[in-house]
Design a protein around this nucleic acid. Sequence first.
DNA 1: ATAATTTATGAAATCGGTTGCAAAAATAGA
DNA 2: TCTATTTTTGCAACCGATTTCATAAATTAT
Lengths: 343, 343
Amino acid sequence: MKKEITIYDIASQIGVSPTTVSRALNNHPRVNERTKKKIYETAEELGYQSNIFASNLRRKYTYNLGVIVPRLDSPFQSSVLAGMEKMASEAGYNLIISQSLDSLSKEIANTKSMFNSRVDGLLVSLAADTGNIDHFQPFFQKEIPVLFYDRVPEQNQFTGVVIDNVQAGFEATSHLIDQGCENIVHVLGNPKINVYMDRLKGYKYALMDHDKHYNPDYVIHLKLDEHAGENIVEQLLNMDPVPDGLLVSNDTCAASCVIALKKRGIEIPRQMAIVGFNNDLISRMVDPNLSTINYPSFHMGEVAVKNLINHLSDEENQLLQKTETITLRFSLIVRGSSNRLAL
Amino acid sequence: MKKEITIYDIASQIGVSPTTVSRALNNHPRVNERTKKKIYETAEELGYQSNIFASNLRRKYTYNLGVIVPRLDSPFQSSVLAGMEKMASEAGYNLIISQSLDSLSKEIANTKSMFNSRVDGLLVSLAADTGNIDHFQPFFQKEIPVLFYDRVPEQNQFTGVVIDNVQAGFEATSHLIDQGCENIVHVLGNPKINVYMDRLKGYKYALMDHDKHYNPDYVIHLKLDEHAGENIVEQLLNMDPVPDGLLVSNDTCAASCVIALKKRGIEIPRQMAIVGFNNDLISRMVDPNLSTINYPSFHMGEVAVKNLINHLSDEENQLLQKTETITLRFSLIVRGSSNRLAL
DNA sequence: ATAATTTATGAAATCGGTTGCAAAAATAGA
DNA sequence: TCTATTTTTGCAACCGATTTCATAAATTAT
């Protein structure tokens, strides 16, 4: 290990105190311009690199933001992360990213680890089985801002970025009804997650709004992955009456349903109209293309980080602890999988 | 900001020196078991949290690994990251992740930022336009291990994790030839990237091996995204003779080709047999399913981190600076898009 | 009982910036 | 020229844990 260049080296090199060097490097106004220039030059020349540990130790600030996502390898989450990274890097922050794998115990471990790493702020999309948010208590107590996005806690006492999932579920369902669907099945993931719960609400409201009867048998809960389609379609075809509309809470799963239905010779959208969620790549690739809710994932990442950093740089604490929820706009994209009227 | 609990608080609480507390908390053997127990209890009771800055400042070790990926929102990269995160978190390391967006200048900025953050090691998949790797020089000089994966530098002087892309290109092309394809087009991305260059080599070798003529016009370079299919198919149909085999260097793009071809009524695989790369979700969803090279992305992430950590914990420097490349196994998955013989 | 070890603990220096306070230098004002 | 300001600079303490070296206490050997 080579010796490190410190501000002391720079200081002695040009016969000035470390204090002045420190101030110069931080561009403190109370340092003579000529001195500054000389210090910059010497620093450059010696290949000086600031020791952030020393700096952090004094300042208690890391310029690191923690992120806890359910899984890294999901089209939605990776798009959010891309937005976060862009914003963070522009503002000079690093992102420390970890995944909970939808397990509460891992989420707790991650939270602890983030706390010990002393991130300046935390961005979280909750694990499926996270019932309460007590494990964030250390952050709350130390007044380190925690911002939830997409999958947020039940309680209303948090800062978060979401879309109006009730409305999204409502619009998607209403659209299916408008297309003449009589019996609409809704497939969703773990109902403990607000996202799914809200969409389900929207689904019910839409039925009510159109004087349709709500049939609990038409609601299917399961893991929304690429293999679910077969199982779902099997169930659909055994229902009485066989449904003619399908609202699936993510595109991957919706696409797998499309495939399973086609395999059985069922015409889409004539016999079965389908709407997914997220506007993932797959929704534009499957045949027929999936109608879906366009989820502003990248933007959500940007907004979340932007907002968190605003909180952090808010010296006067004017925003701090102000509980607020930012709701982003979504839109229903109608494509072949549900567009009966265009037939 | 509440006052922080330090080892001094613990020390004075039970009338012992900070030295002993520090040693106890690090489970140093030279501390009496009884004393240790008391220190642990008091630490717990006071809600002590170690200050990693102070610790890092002394130890010069962060337990942070840097990762620079071309883009966060790619199925391949996010799967690699998932593997990395799993391994890192098991070993007690954090991941600081940033994206270069395939721009050299951003990669340089990211590298600097990682260096200033004093990560213990760096994992890199290079940007498309990265010609040389001079910007990693500070890492090399300070002997901070840098491990490249997938997209690695031209030079042979690096530690890296890859698959044998020459062989993969060879096998994929040979497979198409075996299926009776006479004229095979190869679509690939920026040829400055080793991955694409190597596959092109494999493509050529396979042609040679089967006594087929190599036609440079049959090699198309462009951005491999979901929109490329139209453009590619347009080109294909204007070729003379019109090709009957297509090797596309990623699944997203290959899937878009499938769609564009079907739109024009071209039968797959009879008139055009197609092989993609990566075994992304989309390859299993498009109709017909895509034959593809199964890329061990998750595993690649695991192996990369595992290996990096091995380097780091190698006290005696036995491994250090030993240039080595780990080559992972890939496999060709044959599906409907190329399986003519099954027709 | 005394010397030789072994075990347990502490004092103080150190890691490298940052910052409150005070002094020195430069400039302005009378 | 001398006092009042304003600019620049530096001293020294501090952030909190780690570690070297030395010493005290306990244990074993002689």
